[in-house]
Design a protein around this nucleic acid. Structure first.
Lengths: 155, 155
DNA sequence: ATTAAATGCTTTAATATTAAACTATTTAAT
DNA sequence: ATTAAATAGTTTAATATTAAAGCATTTAAT
């Protein structure tokens, strides 16, 4: 995480790139998180509501995958959303190990109101890059993400 | 955070780019975190040790800035590093509000051993991009981060 | 010199997160 | 049909994180 490290050309380049990647994503994300918290939600709660809005009813396992959190954590996140009356949890009849999680009326109202604002904030931040640059950035990130994903699988 | 959102061209492009940026940095970071944890450190502890290795003695405030965590949190992180005998904490004589935090012998030995491996892991992941692509990615990220940084200041 | 504000750090309380052990249920193998 | 393995979710214990309030010290204003 430093620009002071003496290594090979490849290492210096990769490390430098990594730091800038982290900083950029942290920086944009910070703006998003501020808005999310201003609306009384945690990042995880927002992630769950957003997934339910755009993908419809899901079970907890699927939600855990979507927001990259552990199963145990999802139990608590859903629990808190239930307390706030933002989601509905129903035991499935066809597989009684699972629950259907979906948006309540209030939940749908909330996330439908917040999400466009969320998009606006992200879009504002990305205005620093023109359309072509965004396309390039997305491509490079995908290349990096995909390559890494494959490496995970190999193990 | 969805590819299902119907918005303007700008919004769809920004959102898509944002998701890929997040995924890419999460993906590379995950590999780094695995190694850090395998060595019995938390991400924050690693960040502090790394800062001390490359920047020398710092006070807690400076460390908080480096690893982007709250002051209260640094107190605990340093405390835990002290317990493991990896850092040294000395009250400054010229400003008795501050402490000098520096690496202990063991701490220096540990981070000096771990860091090159850390670099190797990052470099491996970034091998998915050639030198020119890395330069482009770094540039785009810097542009994004810098722009955002400015927006923070404005408020 | 005195006082007010700022700074550096700690403590506390609330919340989030994970890993691991656990229960209940379903699927697959024989 | 019985049993073993896999899957979905919960609980628990340990740790991390933050925000806010507090203490000690330094700096700046008068």
């Amino acid at each position: 995480m430093s620009t002071h490290y003496k290594g090979t050309k490849e290492e210096v380049s990769a490390l430098d790139c990594f730091i800038k990647l982290l900083r950029a994503s942290e920086s944009v994300n910070a703006a998003a998180v501020r808005q999310i918290q201003a609306n009384g939600l945690t990042e995880s709660q927002f992630g769950v509501l957003e997934a339910l809005l755009h993908l419809g009813t899901l079970n907890q396992n699927q939600l855990a995958g979507k927001i990259l959190k552990s199963g145990g954590n999802i139990t608590l996140v859903i629990d808190n959303l239930l307390k706030h009356g933002l989601v509905v949890k129903e035991k499935r009849s066809d597989d009684r190990r699972c629950y259907w999680i979906s948006l309540s009326g209030r939940g749908k109202e909330l996330i439908s109101r917040i999400f466009p604002e969320h998009v606006r904030i992200i879009t504002e931040r990305f205005a620093a890059l023109d359309s072509e640059e965004q396309k390039q950035l997305a491509l490079l990130c995908r290349k990096l993400g995909t390559a890494n994903h494959n490496q995970e699988e190999e193990k």
